[in-house]
Design a protein around this nucleic acid. Structure first.
Ligand SMILES: Nc1ncnc2c1ncn2[C@@H]1O[C@H](COP(=O)(O)O)[C@@H](O)[C@H]1O
Ligand SMILES: Nc1ncnc2c1ncn2[C@@H]1O[C@H](COP(=O)(O)O)[C@@H](O)[C@H]1O
Ligand SMILES: [Zn+2]
Ligand SMILES: [Zn+2]
Lengths: 290, 290
DNA sequence: TATTCCGATAGTGAC
DNA sequence: GTCACTATCGGAATGAG
């Protein structure tokens, strides 16, 4: 059973809301040397851009250690899950460890780590040729998807109109039995999962995350594309045909990013990513309230 | 007659000599987040690289104003030379203003600015089609070259072995008349001059500078190449044939830089530029003492 | 399609 | 091939008391 440790991606603090003085008073910026003392007060107002800390609060020491293992940073979770605090290792058994992604790319972002050391050094494309192994992973994936769905409900249920009937029933004087509750919003539909066609981390991991893509860690176009294109391969694509093109996934050049919700093309590269961030912020508000 | 205001490029302070502690103690550096408070003292030692001020001392206010005119920054000198202090405007008459380059690329670096507003908005390739105008410029150029040569003599004469006889004669009990002095080193040979094939500043200017290329403003490979290749066009190349290739000078890609003194190829780009700076520092010492 | 730091590279504006 | 600022890109390293 998955515990309910609700420290998630939106702990990442977005840029501090700018005071009126900050962006109202002066819209132009000088490119010339800050010069003598006349400009000092002036320059004071100009954006040194405080440069956000990597993590809002630094993670625990044990988790920090994993960051120094580079691309092998997931190994320690699989070999010694008990050494991690429960807000990072959400659940584990002999076969799997479920962790919170240390750099979540959505409001909720978990990773399922298979522990079998023979299997977990391969990509999904190879590891999932073993159908028995695959099926265990699929079962776990389903379980975690459900859990993420519940996490979404508890996080956004109170602003979601689809939850209204269920909410009212629960708050009624005589709440119905659990099975009798109105189902509310189908949050499982808002969960995506799968493996990356070209993982960067060396140990097999299945992403399970909310589809909102709202996180301070969602910084680069690669990040966005990796969860919104065929680069994210769902587990029902396995076992994969020997000739399937995703076994030799090519590197993408600089593909356009499309809004996951409305399909709007937001362009590519860093400029596109700025548009994505701005656009998703608005979509997010609507999406929560569906 | 040119005044003798000896505030020159080597006022630019080179980087402070690094203390032994600075580069000896630790050669490895971590690329991972500085993390908790344990690292603070450690990180303290690591190179924040103080980032030199643009100018050693900020220039006078009037001269600072020219920097806010971008590529038109030379115009004010030609229209109102009297408004500048004499350490910036070295000399002027109805036809020319001679200034110190605000970002000198050599120990001595002057600019000759023709004042004729009909002429000075064109590149040399066009302006010097007017032969009468060209000849006035060439006369002035010669005068300024001689002046720079004298400036070099007074700056480096006392360490130059070629100056020895002259120096001794001058310090003798009965110094000979001026015309009778031993000539000493031919410093005019150490002066280069001309116009850039593709100027960045909009008003016609003739560079007259010592060939040492020693200056804190000599930062980018473009800077170096612009004074050590055919990009610097001497005035005797004018008037230029209609079909001369320098009338449509192409952009250079990333040409190798060669030591102006020994011809050594020092490579291209920023790495090459670092080698140039290091190599020239040694050449400079020898060159002064020739 | 790990993160972080650093340095090199581009693109803009110039009060 | 202005300068100065900023953002972007590209590689290297991946604690250590
Ligand atoms: N030390 C770590 N602990 C937990 N998650 C990590 C760590 N390092 C990287 N990650 C996450 O692992 C995922 C690897 O993605 P990928 O290899 O592209 O499938 C990314 O979502 C990272 O945020
Ligand atoms: N405001 C300024 N005052 C004096 N010299 C300047 C100013 N701005 C740029 N320069 C110099 O003008 C020269 C222009 O070079 P170029 O246009 O390439 O021939 C460079 O050597 C600059 O250092
Ligand atoms: Zn949209
Ligand atoms: Zn040399």
């Amino acid at each position: 059973m998955l515990e309910d440790n609700r420290a998630t991606a939106d702990d990442f603090e977005e840029e501090a809301p700018s005071t009126p003085t900050n962006n109202a008073s002066t819209t132009t910026t000088s490119r010339l040397p800050k010069g003598g003392k006349t400009n000092d007060a002036f320059a004071e107002l100009m954006k040194p851009k405080p440069k956000l800390p990597a993590h809002p609060r630094e993670p625990d020491k044990r988790t920090q250690q994993t960051r120094f293992m580079g691309r092998d940073g997931l190994a320690a979770y699989t070999t010694n899950p008990a050494s991690f605090p429960r807000d990072r290792v959400v659940q584990y058994d002999d076969d799997f460890v479920v962790i919170r992604d240390l750099y979540p790319k959505a409001t909720i972002h978990l990773l399922i780590l298979p522990r079998d050391a023979e299997k977990n050094i391969h990509r999904g494309q190879e590891a999932f040729d073993d159908v028995a192994f695959l099926e265990r992973c699929q079962t776990k994936e389903k379980e975690v998807r459900d859990w993420v769905a519940e996490e979404l409900r508890s996080k956004f249920g109170k602003v979601s109109v689809s939850e209204l009937a269920r909410r009212q029933a629960m708050e009624a004087d005589a709440p119905p039995a659990n099975g009798e509750l109105p189902p509310g919003r189908d949050w499982e539909r808002e969960v995506i999962s799968g493996v990356h066609a070209i993982p960067s981390m060396n140990h097999l991991h299945i992403h399970v995350l909310s589809r909102d893509m709202m996180s301070g860690w969602m910084k680069k176009s690669n990040h966005y594309l990796s969860f919104t294109t065929e680069f994210l391969i769902p587990l029902d694509a396995f076992p994969m045909d020997k000739g399937d093109w995703r076994r030799q996934f090519g590197h993408w050049s600089d593909a356009d990013m499309k809004c996951w919700r409305c399909g709007l093309n937001l362009g590519s590269g860093a400029p596109g990513m700025r548009r994505v961030k701005a656009h998703l912020k608005e979509e997010f508000e609507e999406w929560k309230e569906e």
